[in-house]
Design a binder for these strands. Sequence first.
DNA 1: ACCTGAACACCGTTCAAGT
DNA 2: ACCTGAACACCGTTCAAGT
Lengths: 201, 201
Amino acid sequence: MALTREQLVDAAVGILSEFGLADLSMRRLARELDVQVGALYWHVKSKQDLLVDVAARLLGSIHPPVRGTDTEPRAAVAGMLTELRTVLLPVPDSAEVVQLAQTMQPAAIQPLTWLRDLLEDAGISAERSGWARHLLLNHLFGSVTVHQDRGSLQAVGSEAPGAPALDADAFAWGVEVVLDGLLGVRPGRASAERPRIGPPV
Amino acid sequence: MALTREQLVDAAVGILSEFGLADLSMRRLARELDVQVGALYWHVKSKQDLLVDVAARLLGSIHPPVRGTDTEPRAAVAGMLTELRTVLLPVPDSAEVVQLAQTMQPAAIQPLTWLRDLLEDAGISAERSGWARHLLLNHLFGSVTVHQDRGSLQAVGSEAPGAPALDADAFAWGVEVVLDGLLGVRPGRASAERPRIGPPV
DNA sequence: ACCTGAACACCGTTCAAGT
DNA sequence: ACCTGAACACCGTTCAAGT
């Protein structure tokens, strides 16, 4: 039976998830699918073209936000970002792949489009929501990358037993800092100030 | 006369600046220096090892900040980031190279260390200054990358004549947003609110 | 329509052997 | 000490030719 583009993407996501981007070559992919390399290029224009589909599939499980309901818009932004992080974290080099896909075909990665809408719901003006989205996505991608790179240095599965989610907190903190800067700190909700210990000089 | 490590780094920076990271291969480098590829590996442990030196040289012209003077610490942070951006912008893929160097040898890239000190001068606690630095650097690297990728799509030198520094503003805006979130918006200095046009809904 | 076989023009890294 | 020559094990992409 004929190979399909979906099978290509499936196999690519599999290799990426198990071995990382360095091992995701067209030749390795062909081997996995028991075809010659040239066969891949009938289904796909280039490797980059394939990676765009891989990125879209990685984020394919993200729920579209329910807009206009009574959920606090600021919480919706934070929620979406946490969801993105949760999906990207277990897949090595996923941030790189999504970032590349985003620069190649910005419209192809749907959840990243929704984020801009949520920001406007939260009161960011249209001419600033694009930049605000970039600010938050750079934080997301950077956090995911640093988490994965640090994880690959130590033995797999050797997380400190007592403190597992230390940089999940750091990520959430960063999101709140940016949102505070964007929306202004509302009195009584100074989120980024929460765990203050030392005096601010 | 014998090849030196400095000559390697010089030639590497040259290729990077002129042609980008994709053309910066060990073989290309050897050709440029009129030696065999193997010769490079007497001076350098690996390509990544070389790239750390390349990154350090790219940021070698950054002034160390004069701490403890009467310059406003918040302005010092913003100034350092602007300086970093100015240096990185003209070199293709420079953000990638510096980011890689930073994860491989965090101490090797001095200016990125100084940034943390400046943040603490500005009143960020020691346990948060590391994360705050990451937040700002992710913004920096993201902004540089997006600027360069967009630039490579249009013809070289075809900037819109009237509006040259549009995303220099966007970058500075992002820095102020993050600093607002970190330090709190002081009344009468709501920097990120400056060019507000539409009502915040 | 879909795939094979084979080529083209590359990579990073190693290492015996030369000087 | 410093470099050559040559190899090892790879890359992405193209394309005539087959079925």
